[in-house]
Design a protein around this nucleic acid. Sequence first.
DNA 1: GTTCCTGCAAAAGCTTTGCAGAAGA
DNA 2: TCTTCTGCAAAGCTTTTGCAGGAAC
Lengths: 146, 146
Amino acid sequence: MPMRRSIEELANELKSLGIRPSHQRVKVLEYLDCNRCHPTVDMIYGSLIRQIPTLSKTTVYNTLNQFADAGMVRALTIDGNEARYDITVEDHGHFRCERCGDVFDFKIDVDSMAAEDLSGFQITDKSVYFKGLCPGCGSKQINIPK
Amino acid sequence: MPMRRSIEELANELKSLGIRPSHQRVKVLEYLDCNRCHPTVDMIYGSLIRQIPTLSKTTVYNTLNQFADAGMVRALTIDGNEARYDITVEDHGHFRCERCGDVFDFKIDVDSMAAEDLSGFQITDKSVYFKGLCPGCGSKQINIPK
DNA sequence: GTTCCTGCAAAAGCTTTGCAGAAGA
DNA sequence: TCTTCTGCAAAGCTTTTGCAGGAAC
C-alpha cells in the first residue's frame, strides 16, 4: 500500500501538471507519498525541517495549496481547527477517532449511496467522514473526555 | 419543512437535556430551528444582535458548543475556515457550492453505502459532503475563481 | 448565598499576505 | 535578465480562555 515512488517519478508527476519540481515541492510530495496518514501541516513541516533546515511553514502551505489546486492532494477538514492532507487516491472514506484524533481510511463506494434531489447539481467531489472510537481506544472502555 | 416550534417547546427541549433555558440559549435554538440554512456563527450573531443588543459572540460560541455536546446540533466543517451549524435531523448529506458557498441538504441513506474494514470501530457519526456547482451557479457557465 | 451565565478583552491557533532576497531558466 | 520560488515577518480570521459583574435558583 505505501507504494513509494522515486524522486524522479515524483518530479515527473509535478512536471506533467505544470509544477516546477523544486526541492521543497518534491520533498513534500515524497512525504505525502510515504506517509499516508493524513498529516497536518505541522507534521509535514516537523519532519521535513530535519532534512531542509531552512524550510518555512509558508512554503509548506503554499505547496499544499498548489497541490490541492492541481488535484494531487485533497484537504480534509474533518475537524475544524486544522487541515489534513491526503494524496488523491480512489474512493475511500475517513474515520476520525474522537479520542486519539487519528484518521483512518476505509474503502467505500460513494456512488452506491442512495442520493436524491441532486439533479442540476454538478458534483466534483464526494467526501465521507465517520467519527467514533477506533479499535484501540474503544477497547479501553473510558469515557471520551470533552 | 421549517417546522417552527414555540418558545415553550424549545425551552422544554433544553430543560430535558439539562440545559437551563436562558433567553440567549432559547433564541439561538429558535434561530437554528427557523433557519435551516447551515448558518455560521456570524450569521447567527448578526441576526440575534438586533433582538438582543447586549449579545456577545462568545455567548453564541458557548451556546453552540453546548448544543453540540448535547447532540442537538451538528458542527459542519465542510470548508476549513468557518464552522456551520445544523439542527440534528435524520440522515442527510451536505452539498457545498464552490462558487456561491451555499450549503444544500440532500437526502441520503448513509447506511446503504458499501463500507468495509470497519470491524472494531465504534461509529457515532456519519457525514457525507459533496462539492461542486449548484444549479444556479452551474448554469452560468463561468469558471470557478480560485 | 451559592452557583451558573453573560460578555468584554485578551490570547491562542491556523492560515494567508507582503515583500525582499535567492534560485532557476 | 527575467521570471519564479522561498521564507521571514506581519496581518487576518475564527475560536477559546480569563475574569468580573450580573442573573437565576
